[in-house]
Design a protein around this nucleic acid. Structure first.
Lengths: 156, 156
DNA sequence: TTGATAACGATAATCATTATCAATAAGGTG
DNA sequence: CACCTTATTGATAATGATTATCGTTATCAA
């Protein structure tokens, strides 16, 4: 077991560069996130890691997910007041936007380079030097369009 | 005093259509938001309204700001874990996106129809029927680019 | 090996927002 | 107008994810 993951080394280099220490917990959080392969809540990761490392604390998982985001290996998805979701990036610099169904909560990713270029252009026109962005498009997914014919969307 | 604002009537119609009651508090919240003419926090609106209506409660301001959003007369801006900001829309259906300076917090609005169209197209390709979206572009504004020459910001 | 201290685990604190609930008032009805 | 139903209010407690705190533990450079 304990298959080596290429991200472990990247993370290690990041920790070195920041003069931060390497710990079992940090590796476990990274491995759990990569293994999940999806948008995952802190709770789910916490419970998963607890089976291998029963002593780990919730705050440690939170702290180290934030650290992974700083390292560029993970990304936080935060929508409104909902709890944060985290996901591992396939590569540093990987990026995508989100389509969110307001009816069933389905979350779909997309990437469109035309859109990226256009945003770059718009920011430049306003004198901004853009670093990153967050685009969420809300609507009804295909399934919910079929199932529901009312359009009286109500969010609360 | 009490200059009539055209939004009062629109809001009244909305309340009628939803079989909700017209109250002094609802009008005051709407008027305060329109008068502020900017992105305003609940606290600021609450304190402002309190000078004219000392008995109003914080929860009432919160509730009615949400209601104004439902009516289409206002919009909520929520970034990360920060407290919500609200702004009056000039017209129902008015929409814009945001450029946010990660250094000084400057918030700038923009609207680009090409961008809107492209998003519509992308959503349709994925089978989504889009209702609204939220785009935030983070980076350095012009002033902060001049002041700061370090580029130690993380890109994702 | 060891000392300084970063990181940990457990838990309390934070803080914007939401829920609760008794009192009030909107607005329809007679 | 007086009455009644109940939506809305104001005050405050509850919520809940996240962050801060703090004593203990573990990393790692010397």
């Amino acid at each position: 077991m304990a298959r080596k993951i290429k991200q472990i080394e990247t993370f290690g280099n990041f920790l070195d560069s920041q003069k931060k220490r390497k710990t079992e917990q940090r590796n476990e959080v990274l491995k759990a996130l990569v293994a999940s392969g999806k948008h995952t809540s802190v709770d789910e990761l916490y419970l998963g890691i607890k089976t291998k490392m029963p002593t780990i604390g919730y705050a440690t998982v939170c702290r180290n997910l934030k650290l992974l985001c700083e390292s560029g290996l993970a990304r936080e998805i935060k929508i409104g007041n909902q709890k944060s979701l985290y996901e591992a990036k396939k590569d540093v610099g990987d990026h995508h936007d989100h389509l969110i169904c307001t009816h069933c909560g389905r979350l779909e990713e997309f990437f469109n380079s035309e859109l990226e270029d256009l945003q770059e252009k718009i920011a430049a026109e306003k004198g901004f030097s853009p670093l990153r962005h967050k685009l969420e498009i809300y609507g009804f997914c295909r399934q919910c369009q079929l199932k529901e014919h009312k359009t009286n969307e109500r969010i609360d």
